[in-house]
Simulated assay, not measured.
Amino acid sequence: MRVDAVLGVAVLLGSGVTAGVLFAVALSVLPALFAMETGTYVYAHKLLGRNWDPTMPVVVLTSTVLAVVLAFVADGTPARVLFAVAAVLLLGVSAVSHLCNVPINRRVKAVADPAVLPDDWQDPRPLWRRWHLLRTILALAALLLNAAAVTAL
């Protein structure tokens, strides 16, 4: 079996998990969080982030590295270009997460008691949703390009 075919399966798995998780959060988790009272939202946000935060960066960055490697080793220029663009999109997912969503997550997690919010509290849900939808679109586009690249191998 060719190395680029094996790596292609791996990049599809990683970018598929990334896009799937972000899509599921956009489709179901976000509407649920918006339906909650603010204190309940803060409590739920803290619970939800426990396992996503250490796991998703590894998945996204591993998928990015795989796409970069494939941009160099894949057979044929079309596949290489598609993998390269997908890598840039996945890097965008990581950048939006790290620079935009994670700082919001930290502010929410810093609330000591969800029943007693600070006087200067501003609900972060609308801003968090906008950044999340951007990274979801980037992840879905990366998955589409990775799939197209794998079929071009």
Results as ranks from 00 to 15, higher is better:
Asp119Met: 07
Thr136Tyr: 02
Ala112Lys: 11
Asp123Tyr: 10
Ser97Met: 09
His98Met: 13
Pro126Ile: 03
Leu89Met: 04
Val96Met: 10
Trp121Ser: 05
Leu127Val: 13
Cys100His: 13
Lys109Glu: 15
Leu133Gln: 05
Ala95Arg: 08
Pro103Gly: 13
His132Gln: 07
Val108Met: 02
Cys100Ala: 14
Val96Ser: 06
Val116Met: 05
Phe83Ser: 02
Ala84Ile: 04
Arg106Leu: 15
Ala86Gln: 03
Ala79Leu: 08
Arg107Met: 14
Trp128Glu: 06
Ala86Trp: 08
Gly92Cys: 08
Leu91Trp: 13
Val88Pro: 07
Gln122Asn: 10
Ala110Ile: 05
Ala110Tyr: 09
Leu91Gly: 15
Leu91Arg: 03
Arg106Lys: 15
Pro118Tyr: 09
Ala79His: 09
Phe83Leu: 06
Leu133Val: 06
Leu134Asn: 01
Pro124Ile: 05
Leu127Cys: 00
Leu82Cys: 02
Ala112Leu: 09
Ser97Ala: 11
Pro118Met: 05
Ala84Gly: 15
Arg106Thr: 14
Arg125Pro: 04
Pro103Leu: 13
Pro103Val: 06
Ser97Gly: 12
Ala87Trp: 06
Cys100Gly: 10
Trp121Arg: 04
Gln122Cys: 04
Cys100Gln: 15
Ala79Gly: 10
Arg107Ala: 14
Pro124His: 12
Pro118Asp: 05
Gly92Met: 09
His132Trp: 07
Val88Leu: 15
Gly92Trp: 13
Ala79Met: 08
Asn105Pro: 04
Pro103Glu: 13
Val111Tyr: 12
Ile104Asn: 01
His98Gly: 13
Gln122His: 12
Val102His: 07
Asn105Val: 11
Ser94Val: 02
Val111Thr: 09
Val102Ala: 13
Arg80Pro: 00
Val116Arg: 14
Asn101Val: 12
Gln122Trp: 00
